[in-house]
């Protein structure tokens, strides 16, 4: 609490005014150059040929099928990683066992792997020359260059998001409330739904928001496993690439503006949830390792 009390104390502002202004100026110029100008230019480029062309691109059947595939992909991968996140956080935060820190590091692994490699690993397993390739071909099942591959690669790259928001949160909350509920006669599920879920609600929402943003925007990993078949295995980011490379830059930016809008909504929701629960810090966005406090 000393920090808040002293926040207006003179030493906190001890730098001369010109140093303060200079530093603020440098910070704002850097942010403007790298963040604000690119952000504005997405919408400027998207509307270059007017609103008519903009909406025509968005209504195009190929755009709509890309939107649909992106929604399906996120719709499968986010709930699965959500269930995993809750289960992993429960095991790690509520129990003591050996190897906890190794488990935490392994959960973080997908963050430190290049998206291209994240796609490649599934090609090695399910691709035509992969482990299950011949078997899948005999049974006429397509995973690589088809929708299942896209979903798998997306699950991989968004794997840690919910877990790493919930683990530190549940570790900080401890076990006392759940233990009290159990001692008072609540069943395991009752304890989970009535005690744990209300406690971790905002952390869960937070993880889902960040997970969803990445799931809908993933490009590299999906690019490896998608066959780039327009109208079939094209997600929104892949559709942006196809339009851009076929010299329809304005069309590419029109579709890109959808993703930019999603990014802005994500940032607004993220800031709002942080406001609701100040303990949340976006550890999935800045993957600083979660170090176990108990083991």
């Amino acid at each position: 609490m000393t920090a808040t009390e002293n926040i207006n104390a003179p030493h906190r502002m001890a730098e001369p005014a010109f140093v303060r202004r200079l530093l603020i100026g440098i910070a704002l110029a850097f942010m403007a150059l790298f963040l604000v100008i690119p952000l504005v230019s997405v919408f400027a480029e998207a509307l270059k040929l007017g609103f008519g062309f903009y909406f025509q691109t968005l209504r195009d059947p190929l755009t709509l099928s890309a939107v649909k595939l992106t929604l399906i992909t996120a719709g499968i991968s986010v709930p699965l990683n959500c269930i995993f996140g809750v289960a992993a956080a429960w095991a790690i935060a509520k129990f003591d066992f050996r190897g906890k820190n190794i488990l935490l590091t392994l959960i973080d692994l997908p963050f430190s792997i290049s998206p291209v490699i994240s796609g490649l690993i599934y090609v090695l397993i399910f691709g035509a020359q992969g482990w299950f390739g011949p078997w899948l071909q005999d049974h006429n099942i397509k995973i690589i260059f088809a929708v299942p591959g896209i979903v798998l690669a997306t699950i991989f790259v968004t794997f840690p998001f919910v877990a790493r928001e919930l683990i530190p949160l549940m570790q900080a909350q401890g076990r006392n409330e759940e233990e009290a509920a159990r001692v008072l006669g609540a069943s395991g599920w009752q304890t989970f739904w009535r005690v744990t879920i209300p406690n971790i609600k905002w952390g869960l929402v937070y993880g889902v928001i960040l997970c969803n943003a990445r799931a809908m925007g993933e490009f590299g990993a999906v690019s490896v496993v998608s066959g780039h078949i327009q109208g079939q295995t094209n997600t929104i980011p892949l559709h942006v690439q196809i339009l851009y490379e076929s010299n329809n830059s304005t069309g590419a930016f029109a579709v890109a503006s959808l993703l930019t809008f999603l990014a802005l909504v994500t940032l607004v929701l993220k800031t709002w949830v942080e406001h609701k629960n100040t303990a949340l810090r976006g550890t999935a966005f800045t993957p600083v390792p979660v170090v176990s406090k108990t083991g």
Binding site: L28, V36, P115, P237, L259, L264, T271, G282, T286
Partner: peptide, 22 residues
């Protein structure tokens, strides 16, 4: 400004790519 710092995480990389290239 504080909220905007996370834009590079929230913005899909393909969008960043075509924007910076342009």
């Amino acid at each position: 400004v504080d909220a905007l710092v996370d834009l590079p995480f929230a913005l899909p990389t393909a969008v960043a790519g075509i924007t910076l290239a342009t």
